[in-house]
Design a protein around this nucleic acid. Sequence first.
DNA 1: TACTTTTGCTAACAGTGTTAACCTAATTAA
DNA 2: TTAATTAGGTTAACACTGTTAGCAAAAGTA
Lengths: 198, 198
Amino acid sequence: MLVKTDRQKQKELTKNAILKATEQIVLQEGWQAVSIRKIADAIGYSLPVVYNHFESKDAIQGEFVKQGFLMLAMAMQSTKEKYTSPEEQLTQMALSYFEFAFSNAAYYRMMFGLGIPNCQKAREITEIGNFSCILIEVISSLMKETDEQRRFLKFHTLWSILHGLTSINMVNLTAAPDEMQQQILLDAIQGFIKNINR
Amino acid sequence: MLVKTDRQKQKELTKNAILKATEQIVLQEGWQAVSIRKIADAIGYSLPVVYNHFESKDAIQGEFVKQGFLMLAMAMQSTKEKYTSPEEQLTQMALSYFEFAFSNAAYYRMMFGLGIPNCQKAREITEIGNFSCILIEVISSLMKETDEQRRFLKFHTLWSILHGLTSINMVNLTAAPDEMQQQILLDAIQGFIKNINR
DNA sequence: TACTTTTGCTAACAGTGTTAACCTAATTAA
DNA sequence: TTAATTAGGTTAACACTGTTAGCAAAAGTA
């Protein structure tokens, strides 16, 4: 049976409607504001209909994670095609990655499980400043330059490397073998140190 | 009034009891399993008592984020004191950061708002592989070496840098000025490229 | 026409964070 | 010592959440 029956068509239609309705809520209020009842309301059906198309709320989120990675991959690909030298490609793709993450913040948050709760009051936490100081101190001792801003920049870079490695391993997306992990970390740090004075 | 009255002592005691009870739940089942009712049960009081000590559930989480950063800072400091050369200090501190994050995963997750939902089924998402391929391709063209494993290592490093910069900016902990952000990104990428062949 | 399957509904279950109303026991003021 | 105030604790409820069971009507099939 290659032809889609009316039923199958209808099923796909409402499934798309669910995803579209969900997206609207996600973009406007974030994933934490999404509820099955809101989705049901938006598509004009009662609550359990949603469960005919998705096994659970997590399954819906999964669909968005998938979509998110698809969009990210597409963005990277199209950026790559605009340049020829690998250096330029890589640099532009990095910018493109950022562009994607921030102009599709809702997606990116779902992809990596970033919550919003801390964001608001995070800046007020003095302990972070404490932590920052320690790192900046070490970095400073490695730098010839004394420019405050460049030190802060390097600190930010280092922290990002550390946090990036950590969280990507934690979400366990790439499933790198355990022995490799330390090597990756050391590799990144060595690169950072080598490059600390331009 | 410098002397603490019995009432103040009692208040501090139950506040600590709340935090300790919460920690136990967090360590055993993760933050998502924490509920005010569970906490109340654990400390042997009724539900609203918790609200006499913490304004909201978020406030409790905030306390743990604070604690987490304190622990992290302490770990870094003590590692630093064990070494003399800045290179060694930095390398060891990076290892120490990792050590902290994974042996205190529950804390680290709360600090950066990493959720668990995707972790389980994330590996099955083929879109991630798709995304990975694109990056690995570019990296390969920059590398003299053809070793598969080293390419994967470099890819992992790059992704971590990107994600780290992104998520730390997203949670907006350091509040770096906007113009600086791009500079930080370019700085990190330049370092990565320079170091791609050891 | 009779039977089966699908589709959608209402209602309920077991939770969640949060708050209002109240009662009792301890502290303070008269 | 007695009266007024305040703090600590309670139960009960509100407005939600994800999820599921049971049932009625519509659609497709024989």
